[in-house]
């Protein structure tokens, strides 16, 4: 049996196949999560089947097959981004097997040689598309993960301006060596952009510091000095201080107990001070002295 015969069979029994396939998909829970609307699924199903027919019947099979693979890739990518599982995504292709087998059986039931040939051909194409679908799915998920990692990295490194020429970098969460490096590069870049004389690295929110991270901190302080800015490290937890001493890491930099003290020190060093305004008796604290 030529592939064109398969194409003709499918075209002839299109309505029936679409109905069966639709049932298979619905039974498989394609719509149950609510991520996909019925109309959307119907469109996807119809588009795919029509391209499939073209791919097996036209003279320009290559072009048609490319279009089919493209279609599978788009559907799989969309499902990956919508949060479908790999099984749910693969089911879109594989659930077409049964309806196609049924159609071919009815058409060629008596000619068993032709039937087997037809079934093999259909299986081969669908399996190939299934793998392609999985590959696209996997790639799309990786893209999503990479994007999210970037977003997290950006979110977790806010350099804030506390005063003219004074920046703060409040670090939160565990610091691995890679993240520390990104954070530090960001800080140094911000020093240039703000023309900052002082940078306060606040590690109150950092539960542990290993030797490598401690070294990164020290390197950052040294690099900032080369650029002409001074660093103050604030909020070193008692356990971290102990760990560092045990590790033999000497924190040969200015350190303050907390961010407030560090800001105070930076203000004093830049010739400024914070004073309490003594309000006149009965006067509002907000009125100018």
């Amino acid at each position: 049996m030529a592939q064109a015969d398969i194409g003709q069979t499918i075209a002839k029994r299109r309505a029936e196949i679409l109905k069966d396939w639709g049932h298979q998909l619905r039974d498989g829970g394609a719509l149950s999560s609510g991520r996909l609307k019925e109309a959307e699924l119907d469109t996807q199903v119809r588009e795919f089947l029509d391209l499939f027919v073209q791919a097996v019947s036209t003279n320009e099979a290559d072009t048609a097959r490319k279009a089919l693979r493209q279609n599978v890739a788009e559907v799989s990518r969309a499902r990956a981004i919508q949060g479908f599982t790999p099984t749910e995504t693969a089911t879109f292709i594989f659930s077409l097997k049964q309806p196609l087998f049924d159609a071919l059986t009815q058409e060629f039931g008596k000619d068993s040689a032709a039937l087997i040939q037809g079934l093999l051909a259909v299986t081969e194409i669908l399996d190939g598309l299934g793998l392609h679908s999985m590959e696209t799915f996997q790639k799309s998920r990786e893209e999503v993960i990479i994007r999210q990692q970037k977003e997290i990295a950006e979110l977790s490194t806010p350099v804030v301006k506390l005063w003219d020429g004074i920046l703060a970098l409040p670090l939160i969460g565990t610091l691995d060596s890679e993240r520390t490096q990104v954070v530090m590069e960001n800080l140094l870049q911000s020093i240039v952009e703000h023309g900052a004389d002082y940078a306060i690295i606040d590690i109150t929110g950092v539960p542990t510091v290993d030797t490598l991270v401690a070294q990164h901190l020290l390197k950052t302080v040294a690099a900032a000095r080369l650029m002409g800015a001074d660093c103050i490290i604030s909020g070193i937890r008692p356990q971290i201080a102990q760990t560092m001493v045990h590790l033999g890491v000497e924190l040969n930099v200015v350190s303050k107990a907390n961010l407030a003290d560090a800001l105070g020190a930076a203000l004093r060093a830049t010739g400024r001070t914070v004073a309490t305004i003594k309000s006149a008796s009965g006067g509002s604290a907000l009125s100018k002295a």
Binding site: M184, E185, L188, I191, V192, K219, A222, A223, L226, M227
Partner: peptide, 17 residues
């Protein structure tokens, strides 16, 4: 004056302070 961040990081790594 004006040392770039990447240059500063590299110098520190190189061991020149």
């Amino acid at each position: 004056v004006g040392m770039r961040p990447a240059v500063a990081i590299t110098l520190v790594e190189l061991g020149l302070t």
